[in-house]
Simulated scan of single mutants.
Amino acid sequence: MKQTDFIAELEFLTTEQGGRNNPAHSGYRPHIEFDNYPDYLTSGQQTYIGQKTVELGTKVKAEIAIIGTEYFSKRLYKNMEFKFCEGSRTIGFGKIIEIINADLKCEDDIDQKTINLNLYPTDIKNRLKSDYRKNYGEAIWCIQKALISNKDFRSNRILRALIYTGNKDIVHLKKMIELARTDWRDLLLNAEYEHPNKRVRNFDNEFGKENIKASR
C-alpha cells in the first residue's frame, strides 16, 4: 500500500442523504475533491484507525494515501476540508487533522488566496480559459507551480502580464514564466510598455481596463 499522506476525520453520509448503500471497509478508495481545488480530482485510499468498517452516518479517523501528490505539493494544510465521492455522487466529507507527507504541507501562515489560482480574480481565470482553450489545463498547471515556488508571481499584476505576453501560446507562456523567474521587471516591461519610457497598459487593472488613455 502507498505510504500515508495525511490523517483525516471523515464523516459518511447516510443512504437517505445520498451516500452509499452499504458500509465502507478499510481500503476503500473514493475520489477526493479538496476545498477550493475543484479543477483536480484525485483518489484517496482510506485506512480506518482502530476499526475495519465504518457505518453510514458516522465519523471515523483514517489514514489517507492519495495519487497525484505532485499536483498538491506545498498546498495542503491542517483543517483543510474536502469531500469524497463515487463519480458525481458525494459520499461524505473530511477534514485534515495531521499531514504526514511533508512534501504536501504548505508554508505556515500563508494566505491561500496568494497560492491558489482558483481564488484569484474572475477576469484572470476567464482570460486564461479564452486564450488557452485546449491548453487551458496545462496553462493553469504551469502558473500554479510558479505561484507555489516563487513569491514574485503572487500578484494580480504579474499574472495578468504573464497571460497577456503568453500571446495565447502555451510554449510562449512557459518562456514568459521563465523570464519572470529571472526578473519579473522584464516581464512587466514586455507587457506594459511600448517603448522603454512609454507605459501603455497597467495590469493592476482588470483585463479590458488595462489600457492607459493617452494624455492630451
Rank of each mutant, 00 (worst) to 15 (best):
Leu76Thr: 04
Arg75Thr: 02
Asn79Val: 03
Tyr132Met: 03
Ile91Met: 12
Ile100Val: 15
Tyr77Thr: 02
Gly57Trp: 02
Lys59Ser: 15
Glu81Asp: 06
Lys59Leu: 06
Val60Asn: 05
Tyr120Trp: 09
Glu107Ile: 09
Leu117Glu: 08
Lys78Asn: 15
Thr114His: 08
Leu117Lys: 08
Ile67Tyr: 08
Ile99Gly: 04
Tyr71Asp: 03
Glu63Asn: 15
Lys61Phe: 15
Tyr132Val: 01
Lys74Met: 03
Glu55Leu: 08
Cys106Pro: 00
Leu119Gln: 13
Glu86Ala: 06
Tyr71Val: 09
Asp103Cys: 06
Thr90Gly: 02
Leu128Tyr: 00
Ile67Pro: 00
Ala62Lys: 00
Glu81Pro: 01
Gly57Lys: 05
Arg75Cys: 10
Ile99Leu: 11
Leu117Val: 04
Ile124Met: 09
Asn79Trp: 13
Phe82Glu: 06
Ala65His: 05
Phe82Met: 05
Ile124Glu: 07
Arg133Met: 10
Lys59Trp: 07
Ile49Met: 14
Tyr77Trp: 13
Lys83Gly: 14
Tyr77His: 15
Thr53Ala: 07
Asp109Leu: 09
Ile124Thr: 04
Glu107Thr: 13
Thr90Ser: 08
Arg133Ser: 08
Glu70His: 13
Thr58Trp: 08
Gly94Cys: 03
Arg89Leu: 07
Asp109Glu: 14
Lys125His: 07
Asn126Leu: 11
Ala65Tyr: 06
Ile96Glu: 04
Lys113Ala: 12
Lys129Ala: 11
Leu56Arg: 04
Leu104Phe: 15
Gly92Phe: 11
Leu56Phe: 01
Asp103Gly: 08
Ala62Ser: 15
Arg133Gln: 11
Glu70Phe: 07
Lys59Gln: 15
Thr122Met: 12
Ile67Ser: 11
Ile91Phe: 10
Ile110Ser: 01
Gly50Thr: 14
Tyr71Leu: 03
Gly68Leu: 10
Asp109Ser: 10
Glu63Leu: 00
Val54Cys: 12
Val54Phe: 00
Phe84His: 11
Lys105Asp: 03
Tyr120Ser: 01
Ile66Glu: 08
Leu128Ala: 08
Thr53Asp: 10
Ile110Gln: 10
Glu81Gly: 03
Gln51Phe: 01
Ile100Leu: 12
Lys125Ser: 06
Asn101Ala: 14
Phe72Glu: 10
Asn116His: 13
Gly92Ile: 11
Tyr71Gln: 06
Ile49Phe: 07
Asp123Met: 11
Thr58Pro: 01
Lys78Leu: 14
Leu119Asn: 03
Gly50Ser: 14
Val54Ile: 15
Leu119Arg: 10
Lys113Val: 00
Ser130Glu: 10
Tyr132Lys: 02
Lys83Thr: 14
Lys113Ser: 11
Ile49Ala: 10
Asp103Tyr: 01
Lys83Arg: 11
Cys85Glu: 06
Phe93Thr: 09
Phe93Ser: 05
Lys83Pro: 00
Arg75Lys: 14
Phe93His: 09
Gly57Thr: 04
Asp131Phe: 11
Asn126Gln: 15
Arg133His: 04
Phe72His: 06
Ser88Glu: 04
Lys61Arg: 14
Gly68His: 09
Pro121Glu: 06
Thr122Trp: 05
Glu81Arg: 09
Asn126Ser: 12
Lys129Ile: 05
Phe82Arg: 06
Glu98Tyr: 12
Ile115Glu: 00
Ser130Leu: 03
Lys83Cys: 10
Cys85Val: 09
Asn118Lys: 02
Leu128Asn: 02
Ile67Phe: 06
